[in-house]
């Protein structure tokens, strides 16, 4: 069960499904309205969506991403892989099996792997070391296409993240190796490359900008990083699935006209560490709800 416990699980699922449809309808209306009205109305649209997000916060069961949180919880304790064991002994940084609050302290340095890991990279590691999966198989096609259901991996990631919902980002990132990774992420954030000269900073280096009608967070600014980073993993209405942070980065690199970054690569961990450092103290509300 997610952080909100309820007894009638089946009734709740139906309830969520109905509400999910309503949300999709409501957001579709929002999107349509936004397109039809002049872009000066964009601020009003943003405010309406923000109000909507607030309503979701007040009634957490209305977020369809929570179905994946529940699924992830079941998967977490289900034996899997060549070794036929569950992930219940996976050490996410607070000791084997401790899930509560673990996400709030990631990324961090793990002595057993001798590297800094974010949530998903650590999950990969546990699936390899505990369950016996092959790394190459796990990273081959890790993200669902648009409209496809959230993959098991994403469901487990959002389950773990949800177990820190309501907490604040508190990754220390103060060990030498952690500082190195944050600095690397900073440099990568500003690194321009590819046929369009794009860097992360091209779209996320200023306040109040948009691409088409999509607002863009200024991710080097702590206030905006805190607001945004805590909403990932997020349920995306346009693709009807939970999108994890590693998946989010993969999609950014697609836009940047770069190839597909591998899940768990040093680059991805460094960018996430940099973003989480910028978001330090921000509240986690995962899964968030996105366009």
């Amino acid at each position: 069960m997610s952080r909100m416990e309820q007894n009638n699980s089946d009734g709740r699922r139906e309830d969520i499904a109905v509400r999910a449809k309503l949300i999709i309808l409501a957001l579709a209306c929002c999107a349509l309205t936004a397109t039809m009205q002049a872009a000066v109305a964009q601020d009003d649209t943003e405010k309406a969506i923000e109000k909507y997000r607030q309503m979701l916060k007040d009634d957490p069961w209305s977020n369809p991403g929570l179905l994946d949180v529940d699924r992830g919880e079941t998967l977490w304790s289900t034996p899997a892989g060549p070794n036929k064991v569950s992930l219940e002994k996976c050490d996410l940084g607070k000791g084997p099996g401790v899930v509560d609050g673990a996400f709030a302290e990631l990324p961090r340095y793990f002595a057993d792997a001798d590297r800094v890991m974010d949530l998903e990279t650590r999950l990969l590691w546990c699936m390899e070391k505990l369950q016996g999966f092959k790394h190459a198989d796990l990273v081959k096609k890790p993200y669902p296409s648009g409209g496809q259901p959230t993959k098991d991996f994403g469901a487990m990631a959002v389950y773990v993240a949800n177990k820190s919902s309501g907490m604040k980002f508190a990754a220390k990132l103060d060990k030498p190796k952690e500082k190195e990774v944050v600095a690397l992420g900073h440099a990568i954030f500003f690194r321009r490359q590819g046929p369009h000269d794009f860097a992360c900073a091209t779209c996320h280096g200023d306040s109040g900008k948009r691409i088409r009608l999509q607002g863009l967070p200024y991710l080097t600014k702590p206030e905006e990083a805190r607001e945004t980073v805590g909403q990932w993993p997020a349920y995306r209405v346009s693709t009807t699935q939970v999108m994890t942070m590693q998946h989010r980065l993969y999609d950014c690199y697609w836009q940047m006209r770069m190839p597909q970054p591998e899940m768990g690569s040093e680059l991805s961990v460094a960018l996430i560490a940099y973003l989480v450092k910028n978001a330090e103290g921000g509240e986690i509300s995962a899964p968030g709800l996105k366009r």
Binding site: L184, I188, R191, M258, P259, Q260, E262, L267, A270
Partner: peptide
């Protein structure tokens, strides 16, 4: 080091 991290992130390119 930055360049190396970028190259390493795309092993199947």
């Amino acid at each position: 080091k930055v360049d190396a991290a970028v190259v390493a992130a795309f092993p199947s390119v």
